[in-house]
Each structure stands twice: as C-alpha cells, then as structure tokens.
Design a protein around this nucleic acid. Structure first.
Lengths: 170, 170
DNA sequence: ATAGTCATGTAATGAGTTACATGATTGC
DNA sequence: GCAATCATGTAACTCATTACATGACTAT
C-alpha cells in the first residue's frame, strides 16, 4: 500500500493534478517508488473516495487539482511512524547470482562486470541529480538529499561488490 | 517473471517437490526473492505445462518430484545472460524518508535510529548465516556466498547511512 | 492548420498475498 | 491414538504493467 502514501506525501507539499504528480514522481520518487500514469489516476480516484484527498479545483482540459485532507495527512503520519517498512527488497540482479554456475565462468564474470558498469552509470546519473536536488529548499528536496545520499552510497557499494565478486570467480 | 527463474534455478541443482522448494527458498533465496507456498505450487503447474519442468517421481501423500528439462535450463541461461535486471528496487523505507518533514524532528530521528538498529540486527542474522553457507559445497552455496557478501555490505552501508542521516536532522 | 503537450480515463493481464481446504504419513 | 509434519491445491483480492482510447488547449 505504498503508492497511496507516496501520493499523500507529494500532495502534502501542495495541491497538484494527476498529471503534475506524474511529473513529480519522475523527478523525485522515480528511483524509490516508480508509478505509472494509469496507476496514479486510479489511486487518486480511490483516495478521493476514501476522503484522504479532495478535488479543490478544476482547470482547462478536465484538469482536476487534488489536495490532501486532514484525514489524509493523519494517515500519512500513521504510515510513517507506525507501519514497519518491508523487510526484504526483491532483487532479480542478486537472484541471478545464485545461479551463475549455470553459465560459463567467462559469462559469469561478464555478468558481474556489467553490473559494476551499470552501478557506475547510475552513480554518475545521481551525481548529476545532486546539483538539482541541492538547489531546492522545499521539504521534498531537503529530505530527498538524504535519500539521494543513500542512493549514492548504495551504488558505490554495489559497484565495489560487483568488482570484488568478479575477482572471486575463476 | 523472476519467480519462474528462481524455481528453475533451484531445480537445476537437483529434483525437488514443491514442498522441498518451499524450504529451499527459506534457507537460500528468502532475502532476495521470497515466495509463498501458494505461488510455488501454481508456478510449478505452469512450468510443467510449458515443458520447462517434468514430474519425475510421485511419492507418498501425493508428493510430486519435479526436475528441470533441457528447455527449462535453456530458458534459465537465457534469462541470466540476456534479460536485463530490473533497474529500480522499490524501497518503502526510503520512501518514508522523503516525507519526514510531516513528523517532528524527534520522531524523524527516531525513525532513522530504528532503521539503523534494524540494519544492525539483519547484519547479525547474516553473520549467523555465514557459517551455514560457508559449509556448503554445492553451487548454490558457492554463489550464495557472493550474494551473502552483498547482503552484509548492504546492511553495513545502510546502518552507517541511517546513523549519518539521523545526525543531519536538527 | 497542425504538432506538441496537457490531461484523464478504462481494460486486460500478470504477479503477489492471504486465507481456506483437505488429507496422508510418521514418530512417539 | 494423536500431534507434528508432509504435501498439495484453489479462491479472492490487491497491486503493477501495458496498451488502448479520447479529447482539449497552446504556440507557431
């Protein structure tokens, strides 16, 4: 049930339309909780029905602007403080590692080398995001910096691990 | 479509029943790709229908032992070498970080401290798994060690990050 | 005028979770 | 005899992805 809370969280920064949220997801939560257009509109509908958000304005082209309600904010806070984050994060990258015996050592090393490179590329992308996020003064940017730092450390660790793992295979 | 490949991968080590696989998941892939009993039996059915596994024996209590076919192995190898691992790993732990402005600084620090502690506990659990995994000589254990090392590094990094992040909030 | 972007919605499908349902065999 | 464990299967529901469908407004 995290998409719901992602939407409530974004709306807590100010009212927005489904379309706005879609773009907001792309620049902020994309690496943490991606969402599709379809999912967003459906969720906004459910959220409105549950009274956690309200339609506060209608604009051109059928644009509907949503704002989070008090009940929505309460639900967001409850989720942050009282619901335990999911223990396991699925990783099909790591799942493949278990089965590397099924391919040749050269191929296995190739796989790990590619993972190291991908981590490197992601690292670069995130370094690029940094200046963007550093600029913002809104809540999302302030705390987004903590999340970005996590991402940077994760990518570095992943690259180092993949390089080490490659060296372990002979 | 990773559950399918997780099953093929486990069966590549030798024939097993749904029940066996369920236990195997718990001791090997639980932290990387958890699966429920229900999911496993359903997937085995589909896999058999697709010709990627065969029922090779039937035992007491309706036990069915499955073995991976050549086609199944080919599919497993194709998946490892040709299918790109998923880019983003969803993290509702990190998602909450974006919205920490919604709760008090004390609560936010508390949240991060708890994440640090949870990472510490997971670290201990994995240290415990280490001796178990170090003992095995099968393919799954050999490559499982690489995955375990990843988990250890990840947990350490996560703990350090959470402690750092906590210190950033005033 | 027309291309681009803004804007919302639905349908189909696949994947994952929880709960229910059932029964055989084994060890004490 | 009875509890534990072995063993499989199905149903209902939620969540996520992809594709389809439609149309209004804006800038050139």
């Amino acid at each position: 049930m995290s998409l719901r809370h992602a939407v409530l969280g974004l709306l807590s920064e100010g009212p927005a339309s489904g379309y706005d949220l879609l773009k907001l997801f792309d620049v902020s939560l994309a690496n943490v909780w991606p969402a599709t257009q379809s999912q967003l509109y459906t969720e906004l509908g459910k959220l409105a029905e549950a009274g956690l958000v309200d339609v506060v304005a209608e604009g051109p082209r059928g644009r509907k602007e949503y704002a989070v309600t008090e009940a929505g904010l309460a639900e967001l806070r409850r989720w942050i403080t009282e619901v335990e984050p999911t223990r396991v994060a699925r990783s099909d990258m790591l799942l493949r590692v278990f089965f590397l015996a099924e391919i040749s050592p050269e191929q296995a090393r190739g796989y790990l080398r590619e993972q190291a490179e991908l981590a490197g590329k992601q690292l670069e992308r995130m370094e690029g995001m940094r200046e963007f996020v550093e600029a913002g003064q809104d809540n999302l940017s302030v705390y987004g910096r903590l999340a970005l730092e996590y991402g940077l450390r994760l990518a570095k660790g992943q690259r180092e691990w993949a390089e080490w793992a490659e060296s372990q295979i002979r």
